[in-house]
Design a binder for these strands. Structure first.
Lengths: 300, 300
DNA sequence: CACACTTACGATATTCGTAAGGATT
DNA sequence: AATCCTTACGAATATCGTAAGTGTG
């Protein structure tokens, strides 16, 4: 039994005429006749009664009609859905992004993506940097957005931009009036930092240690938002990746470029190296590359 | 998208190898390769990733796998079910039979039918003779069992046997000792008959009137069983089609052959003339012809 | 006799399998 | 070097459309 045969049968059953069914099927009468015969042979008995003048259904044919309808509807529906996955009319992407990115640059990118592909569902996992890498590696998500990982075994990393640490100071502070700040000046203040498991914290410590500078942290939190509020309320200062600037300023803190040692890291897209991305994920990656191309509003 | 293509895809997706899928599909590698390519072209994108050493699925391929499974399962299931309708492994027949037949000869016939075709559902409509004809004409049932109808417009009648009226007398009566009875002797007793809408009553009156004999009915009922009980309890005698003999005797009455005017009518199968019977109905008709061939246990 | 489906048949397309090619482990 | 998929090509098969045939109203 083939799709063509079933479609032919249904056309005849619905029009009760080979001739009329031919128009619908774009087929000649003899071809249709043979097609129906083939179906009947494959099923083991007659489905239609041809009385030269009128076509009618055998009881078995009557049984088949509703079954054939359902089967073909399912068939066409599935075919169409699959096709939509390739034409980006429909789909689903799961991504993971580190909180600093998910909370600052990602929303605009998703807005742009949704404008172009309104029926593609995007699931965002807002998890810490290490877990982003882990989720990509385990193929829980198709794409990850994180700092460049040290070990790239089985992972492909595409840089989006180079992120610099910026100073975060209270708006009311005297420092807020400067146009830029030296690391040495910043570190004289009470420092508020993210807690240990954080990648941002690790990068900060590593880089400063390499410069021979020790960190003395006055306050800690594991949430970026909390750090921002702490700074805003005058508790101290902080240093965060520049991509957090919008969030920090929204919380009432001021961000300033830092000079002295340049502490910067690549932020980019992670994907499994061997695995192919879905069309939808590819499109999302493209949109991310586009919207995130020059996001840094603090100078070097 | 064709059935063959989908089957091929699923085989590759499940074995993750073209070579192994070939065995299952009884197809050469190149042919399979082309088939998959055809499917991918028709859907608009790649479903499988061939890395010469290992085959894996694209995300779109992953989406298709469960859909394809369902689609093919439905497909095969439908095909098998339809085929079973032709091989009599599965099916449904609706028939209508007049009460005298439904209650006496039909059960044994259905027993024989069920023994041969255990999975064919038979729906019996136990209705009066006229309604049997009506149900066949309106195609509410595929087969009817009734007396030969006068108007056979659009109906095909196949005789099963010729039924004679037999006398029904109380077992306790003196008549019960006779081996046969004359109509004239029977009609001297109080007569119990079916009520007017009944075909049995009509046949009786018509035939006797043709012989110049008038009927004087003492008691009436519209149920054969009641007539039987009335006779059994000594209220009077009756005359019923011979096919009711088993029922009458079960109710405690005695049946005797009648001589004098022979009152007989054809009992047979009714079916729509133009309409084709289902394979199941044909089989049932055959079984009925077989089991009912010589049912008359009262002589002529 | 006209309409509607079937059968016959030659032409065209598809599909298949064998053989050769290419890439990866 | 061996394995596995793809491409190439000739052969077999299937399908199609035109033309002729058949039966019914």
């Amino acid at each position: 039994m083939t799709v063509k045969q079933l479609r032919a049968f249904l056309a005849v059953a619905q029009t009760l005429s080979f001739t009329r069914a031919c128009d619908r099927l774009h087929l000649s009468q003899p071809a249709l006749s043979l097609t129906i015969k083939g179906l009947e042979d494959s099923l083991g008995g007659p489905l239609l009664i041809r009385s030269t003048r009128r076509v009618s259904l055998t009881p078995e044919g009557e049984v088949l009609v509703p079954l054939a309808k359902r089967l073909l509807a399912d068939w066409d529906n599935t075919e169409e859905r699959l096709r939509q996955h390739f034409t980006l009319e429909l789909g689903r992407v799961a991504i993971a992004a580190m909180p600093s990115f998910a909370g600052n640059l990602l929303p605009d990118a998703l807005m742009a993506f949704r404008a172009r592909f309104p029926r593609i569902n995007v699931t965002v996992h807002d998890v810490i940097n290490e877990e982003v890498i882990e989720m990509v590696r385990r193929e829980r998500v198709e794409l990850g957005i994180a700092f460049a990982p040290e070990a790239t075994d089985g992972l492909a990393f595409t840089p989006l931009f180079r992120d610099h640490f910026v100073a975060v100071v209270p708006a009311a502070s005297a420092l807020a009036n400067e146009t830029s700040l030296a690391w040495s000046a910043l570190l004289e203040e009470d420092l508020i930092a993210l807690q240990r498991p954080s990648m941002v914290r690790r990068l900060l410590e590593q880089e400063l240690a390499a410069q021979g500078v020790g960190l003395s942290v006055a306050f800690e939190s594991h949430q970026l938002a909390t750090v921002g509020r702490m700074v805003a309320s005058g508790l101290g200062v902080s240093a965060v990746p520049s991509l957090c600037t919008p969030q920090m300023q929204a919380l009432g803190a001021r961000c300033l470029p830092l000079h002295g040692p340049v502490i910067a890291h690549e932020v980019g897209l992670l994907s499994p190296k061997d695995r192919k991305l879905s069309v939808a994920a590819q499109a999302l990656a493209e949109v991310l590359k586009g919207t995130v191309s020059t996001p840094v509003l603090c100078s070097e």
